[in-house]
Design a protein around this nucleic acid. Sequence first.
DNA 1: GGTGCCGGGCG
DNA 2: CGCCCGGCACC
Length: 338
Amino acid sequence: IKSPEELDMDKVTAAMVLTSLSTSPLVRSPPIRPNESLNGSWKEGGFVPSSTSSSGYWSWNAPSDQSNPSTPSPPLSADSFKAFRTPSQPDDGIDEAETSNLLFDEPIPRKRKNSMKVMFKCLWKNCGKVLSTAAGIQKHIRTIHLGRVGESDYSDGEEDFYYTEIRLNTDSVADGLSSLSPVSPSLASPPSFPTQDAIRPETSCAKTETKLMTPLSRSAPTNLYLVHTDHAYQATPPVNIPGSTKFTPNGSSFSISWQSPPVTFTGIPVSPTHNRPAGSGEQKQSHTVLSSPPRLPFLSDRKPRGEGKKCRKVYGMENRDMWCTACRWKKACQRFID
DNA sequence: GGTGCCGGGCG
DNA sequence: CGCCCGGCACC
């Protein structure tokens, strides 16, 4: 069961990955994309917990790598925070100046010569800036239009809706999936992608409200796709940490989340104790849901297994009478809920 | 192989 | 219903 908070988390995590990807040394080195296969495209850092259909999101989860609940900030606890970071990726060391320089001027070598080129265009009125990376455009919007200077690492996903992707080369279409760059939060879905004009924010005030009230709502349902790999975590699925190299390279571990109007959230309401989906992949119906995208055949929604210790482990087989009834009945534990 | 727990059977 | 377990996906 996914809570709304988790959904938000997904989004936040996705955003984090996006930004951290751009600042990660990995991205800068040429051979980031050894091949064009799904695996190759995704193992770099994608990730994000995902959820299942029936709500604003749909996705296919990775069976693995889902045990890492994490929040961008603040750390839930010492432990989770530790898990959240990967030993190989100290995410610091890059100062702001370098970061922006990188984001704005250095296109990420995402594709080989003949593949299509994807650019991201800012949709703010009188702007129209075009950058080559989603992270770059997000940063641009965040700093220039949203005025969030200090929180360069943080994204609530709002900026995702203020820019659009432009494809400048249409050959090689077959790899629909691999063409989805892990660094691109908003991708077009062939038939339903609206023109960029459709998603032009008219107001720049109140962010949260804006999302619900702007014209976004009329086009959002089918136009924005969030792509991430899974890990909940929280999640949904599982959690890949920004910049983490730990993402499971075995194909099945990524997810694409579709979402209707931007999920609304300003803060990150993450409960320290409930950041993992408990049982099956079901999740609460989101109030922002406007429609449900079709389920892809290859999406599998395996339920992430509860992570926490349960009665059995805590008390042991010998003390079975101390277990909660659910555990005794071999049902979902009610005492130690994930 | 252990664990969590869904699905289902039995009283 | 309460109670239990086969079986399976996860670890």
